[in-house]
Design a binder for these strands. Structure first.
Lengths: 259, 259
DNA sequence: CGCCGTCTTGAGTCGCTTCAAGGGTAGTGG
DNA sequence: CCACTACCCTTGAAGCGACTCAAGACGGCG
């Protein structure tokens, strides 16, 4: 499996992520250490980077493209647990076997560090271990937010939330350079099948819901992966997470109306 | 709110958790430090320990009882994100505002550390920071497993999984002393409403499903919180996570039959 | 060109929620 | 001590959101 991938020293092709992820604000010594250890790797869409319940030979971060981490039930049902965009880290330090499979949801470029080597650097640079702690806490926050989404939101709300999350990420300073000035455009970097596996629904429901949003003038479908947001306010309301909503309707009915 | 709680120095009532959680295997100096900092606190069922989006004044671990961490949508829908049992830690170090509300799902005893003080100890004892990293990674694993459960399992599967998870926890060496020899009995430490909010369903569905399991001889209902497992094999099959299931049925239909 | 994967759309079905009602038990106060 | 309230759990009936199944359009690639 690894034989299919390209591995080459980072020195030839410098990692562009100095301003993101683990390298951001790192002390010069630490950064030098990481650059020495890092190797660029290119994977094609669909390729498996680390298998479920497999050893984790390396950790790293996404340079370009999208990685998905997913779990599979014995009968074949799959759930995407995390989408990793440029700047995100993948792989678990100190975890000998992975609890998820990590696969390329698009063609990706990765910056990989051998796990053992990375852990050795962590031991020598407490700032790196601290940074990892914060990074994993952030991941945990995102996971718990996803639990809320899957546990008590409708398909419409999930899709609206997802689009808004993508939008927020795209507007972050780090990624802004990649899409200059294209504010009302949301680019979904994955196919419907992955959206469905991430949002806990089906491709058909996603298709129907997005078409319905377009019919109501919330967005315009440029092509299946690109949307122009026409009414951000309404999209936010559809997400069920709008702060300006009536604060408390008094105690819970579990489902919201689709309005 | 805090005025309702009892706070007293741990020295009077020694924390019984030397063998669990952060204190386990800690060096004597670190343990002394933590004992100095820790304060026992008792909360009655329903009490809020830390509110959503509030400051986190302390972190700590559960001594007895059950804590729930939950998120609330603006329209009142709630989702329990985590159940914290004896030995589990609550609160986030380095996180100034909590992303969840932490509430007592039963009467609980907590061992609390002031957050600032705890962080100071972490700075002086790298072993503590490392231990926290591992602990949060474990939490992340659990959260991602819950995403799988909520994203693609039926209500029956969720309930069976939940019961088996409780069972596994009860059998852990740490907790085993508390329930000696009562192997086939599962005690559910929370009410139906909390189960529903944790499993992403409704009290009615839970009630129906459990009654159905009893009718089929999978378990016997001793009382609403206690069940005797009559057919663990079948319960495991119902959970949809049995390892001995046909490994691959070939690609995914999203829902499983209820068999 | 023909195959394959992706996306869309329609029709039918069903699992689960919603709504409604009843019994049981704990806690409270007269 | 006993009403009285409140909450918890259960059960039934009805409705609906989302899934399943099926078919067709579109586009890329060997």
């Amino acid at each position: 499996m690894f034989a299919h991938s390209m591995l080459r020293p980072i020195s030839n092709d410098r990692c562009a992520l100095h301003s993101c992820s683990v390298c951001r604000d790192a002390s010069p010594e630490l950064r030098a250490e990481l650059e020495r250890l890092g190797r660029l790797r290119i994977c094609r869409r669909g390729e498996t980077v680390v298998g479920e319940e497999e050893d984790t030979p390396f950790v790293g971060n996404v340079v370009s493209g999208v990685l998905r981490t997913q779990k599979t039930l014995h009968d074949g049902r799959q759930q995407i647990v995390e989408l990793l965009l440029p700047g995100d880290m993948f792989g678990r330090v100190f975890a000998h076997t992975s609890r998820v499979s990590i696969e390329a949801a698009s063609n990706v470029t990765l910056c990989c560090f051998g796990r053992a080597g990375f852990e050795a650097v962590m031991a020598r640079f407490p700032e790196l271990e601290h940074r990892m702690l914060l990074s994993i806490m952030e991941e945990l926050n995102a996971a718990q937010d996803w639990i809320l989404l899957l546990g008590c939101q409708t398909v419409t709300e999930r899709i609206a939330s997802f689009l808004l999350i993508l939008r927020r990420r795209a507007l972050r300073p780090c990624a802004a350079a990649a899409t200059p000035g294209a504010f009302p455009i949301i680019r979904v970097p994955i196919c419907r099948r992955d959206m469905a596996a991430y949002l806990g629904t089906t491709v058909e429901s996603i298709s129907r819901t997005i078409q319905e949003m377009a019919r109501r003038g919330v967005l315009r479908i440029i092509d299946p992966q690109n949307f122009e947001i026409l009414d951000e306010r309404r999209l936010s309301l559809l997400s069920g997470r709008d702060a300006t909503e009536k604060p408390f309707e008094h105690v819970a009915t579990r489902r919201a109306s689709i309005a």
